[in-house]
């Protein structure tokens, strides 16, 4: 009588199936099990990537299926890399990334440090703080548009209350100088809790005994923070920066809802440009080249960053 699950399964397998299976090597069996996953990955990730690379060397337009497709060599890449508007968009994206990452890391870490202190209502505050990241970006974009309304918006009213200025005197999403900050504020409001949660996990992973030893050595709180807390949380912080960096590089929905990339091109991120080229202008070949350039950039930067992260973790 078979006793284990495996033995029972083997006993239940019909002989005509069991016999050829028994003759398979472990490696062959492993391939059979992972084949569906590999097939899916090839179909969903690798094939589109190869297809996109191929399209990037052509003048193909998806809205002209009957038109002749011509091989244009590196022309699409040349046009993109020599277009000042593309570089301006890259610059906007870089500014957005730096501003949001700095703010989210600083505020997220500070919040995590505060939440890590034991106080009454600790859990309630944690729940309240993480609420924004549970909302849909489209919803967040929509209601912040109302909050930023010069005449009826709460944001303008609040600023006016503290500064005494006219609430209708400035438009967060309509002015060149303010629009990038309008997006940074919303993204920070929404995603700082995510950074906070990762930092909190890092803070709670530090053994209490290290602090007790430092106390015995009469280390000040600041010294404990600089020599224990910060180095031990650093890998977590770097991980949060990696996640948020990748997410914000492809930021689309929030910006479209808030400013649509305007005023002018002040908040036009690369993802918006790419979408317009691919699905509004229908320059599929050109957009493919653009996507490949972005892919290489993100992949390169991420690889360097992950190496740095591994070094920090190994210390």
């Amino acid at each position: 009588m078979p006793e284990t699950v495996i033995e029972r399964a083997a006993a239940a397998t019909p002989a005509q199936i069991a016999r050829p299976l028994r003759s398979l090597s472990d490696r062959a069996l492993a391939w059979i099990f992972i084949a569906p996953t590999i097939f899916l990955l090839l179909a969903v990730n690798i094939f589109p990537l190869i297809w996109t690379i191929r399209l990037s060397f052509t003048n193909f337009r998806a809205n002209r299926p009957n038109a002749e497709v011509q091989f244009v060599g590196l022309e699409n890449y040349r046009r993109i890399l020599t277009d000042p508007d593309v570089w301006a968009t890259m610059q906007v994206t870089a500014h957005f990334l730096i501003a949001t990452l700095v703010l989210q890391v600083v505020i997220g870490f500070a919040l995590a440090w505060l939440i890590n202190q034991k106080f009454r209502g600790n859990d309630l505050w944690t729940t309240i703080i993480v609420l924004p990241m549970m909302l849909s970006p489209a919803v967040v974009g929509n209601f912040w548009t109302f909050l930023y309304q010069p005449q009826i918006g709460l944001f303008n009213a609040a600023v006016s209350f503290f500064t005494g200025g006219d609430p209708a005197g400035f438009s967060m999403i309509g002015e060149v100088a303010l629009a990038p900050w309008a997006i940074v504020i919303v993204d920070t409001w929404m995603w700082t809790p995510f950074v906070m949660l990762i930092c909190l996990a890092g803070l709670r992973s530090i053994p209490q005994s290290i602090y007790e030893a430092a106390e015995c050595d009469r280390a000040s709180k600041w010294r404990q923070f600089v020599t224990i807390t910060l180095p031990m949380v650093l890998p977590f912080l770097m991980l949060a920066v990696l996640f948020r960096g990748i997410e914000n590089f492809k930021m689309f929905d929030l910006v479209v809802q808030l400013t649509g990339g305007g005023p002018g091109s002040t908040t036009e991120l690369t993802s918006i440009t790419l979408k317009r080229e691919a699905f509004e202008k229908w320059r599929t070949g050109y957009a493919s080249a653009y996507a490949i350039i972005l892919f290489v950039a993100v992949f390169g930067i991420s690889s360097i960053y992950v190496k740095a992260l591994n070094k920090v973790k190994a210390r």
Partner: peptide, 9 residues
């Protein structure tokens, strides 16, 4: 000159 504040889009 003549549009409401915030009417940029």
């Amino acid at each position: 000159c003549c549009t409401p504040p915030g009417s940029s889009d």
